[in-house]
C-alpha cells in the first residue's frame, strides 16, 4: 500500500526526485510560488506526463493502470474548485462515484454525513458559502473512498475557522487509514497539522521530514528568502516573518 515518486521529473518544472508516502499520514507539500508543488501533486495523481521516472502505486507504474482503476485508488481535489453547472450538493458529491460507475447512495450519504452536509444535500451548489463548498468538494473525493487523497491548496480560499474545520476532516480521513497529501501555502498550518512536510524549491526537493525539521527556521529563511522564526510551543506554532535584511 504505497504511493510515491520514483526518480520522477517533469521537464522545466520538477527535477527528478524520489519519495514515498505513507497511508494514514497527512503530508504537506510546501514551497514558494513556482516551486513545483502542484506539478508534483498532479503527477502523483497520474494527470501529467513525466519527463523521466514514474509515479508508483503499490510498486507499479501508475501509467500501467487504467484511468478508472487509478481513480478508484487516488482521489484528486484540484485548486480551482469550479463547478460548471448548478447541480445539487448530493449530485456533486455523487460524482465521486464515477470511477466505480455506480451511484452508491450509502457512500454518498456517508460522505455528506462525514462533512456535516446532510442538511444541505438538496441545495444548489451556487447557494453554498465558500466553506460549505470546500466541504462539498472534499466530500466528492471521499465518496469514492480512495486510499489516497491528493488536495491542491484545499485551504487557500477559506477563513481561519473553516481552515481548521476542513483540516480536522482531513485529519479524520487520515486517521481512518487514508493517505492525505496536500499542497499548503500557510507554513504555520503545515507545521501544526502535518505529520510530514516536503519542501520544494525551484523544482528541487529542499527538505523532507517531520515538520519541526523540514520547516526549521534555517530552511524557511533559505527557501523563502525571508528572516523568520517560530514562536509558540509544538502544535501551536506561529511563524514570525520579517523582510530579508531587516533583522
Amino acid at each position: 500500500m504505497s504511493l510515491g515518486a520514483d526518480n520522477l521529473g517533469i521537464r522545466g518544472r520538477l527535477e527528478p526526485l524520489s519519495v514515498m508516502f505513507e497511508e494514514g499520514q497527512v503530508t504537506a507539500i510546501c514551497g514558494p510560488n513556482g516551486a513545483g508543488k502542484s506539478t508534483l501533486l498532479a503527477a502523483l495523481a497520474g494527470l501529467i506526463e513525466t519527463a523521466s521516472g514514474k509515479a508508483v502505486l503499490d510498486g507499479e507504474d501508475l501509467k500501467n493502470r487504467l484511468p478508472r482503476e487509478r481513480a478508484q485508488h487516488i482521489g484528486y481535489l484540484p485548486q480551482d474548485g469550479e463547478t460548471a453547472w448548478d447541480v445539487s450538493v448530493r449530485n456533486l458529491v455523487s460524482l465521486g462515484r464515477l470511477p466505480y460507475g455506480d451511484e452508491a447512495p450509502e457512500m454518498v450519504d456517508a460522505a455528506l454525513e462525514a462533512l456535516g452536509l446532510k442538511a444541505h444535500a438538496n441545495r444548489p451548489v451556487s447557494t453554498l458559502s465558500g466553506g460549505e463548498k470546500a466541504r462539498a468538494l472534499l466530500a466528492r473525493v471521499l465518496a469514492g473512498q480512495p486510499r489516497w487523497v491528493l488536495a491542491d491548496e484545499p485551504l487557500a480560499a477559506l477563513d481561519i475557522g473553516h481552515q481548521q474545520a476542513l483540516l480536522s476532516y482531513l485529519r479524520q480521513t487520515a486517521a481512518a487509514g487514508t493517505g492525505v497529501i496536500m499542497v499548503l501555502h500557510d507554513l504555520s498550518l503545515a507545521m501544526n497539522h502535518a505529520d510530514r512536510v516536503l519542501v520544494l524549491d525551484r523544482g528541487k526537493l529542499a527538505a523532507d521530514g517531520a515538520p519541526e525539521n523540514a520547516l526549521a527556521t534555517g530552511v524557511v529563511e533559505r527557501v523563502w528568502n525571508v528572516s523568520a522564526n517560530w514562536a509558540g510551543s509544538p502544535g501551536e506554532r506561529a511563524l514570525m516573518v520579517r523582510p530579508p535584511g531587516s533583522a
Partner: peptide
C-alpha cells in the same frame, strides 16, 4: 454522458476520475 458529468468539476478533476 458520464464523462460529461465528470467535467462539471473541470478538466483536471474529470481526468482524475478516469475521464479519457
Amino acid at each position: 454522458r458520464k464523462d460529461l458529468d465528470a467535467l462539471i468539476l473541470g478538466d483536471a478533476a474529470a481526468r482524475s476520475m478516469g475521464m479519457r
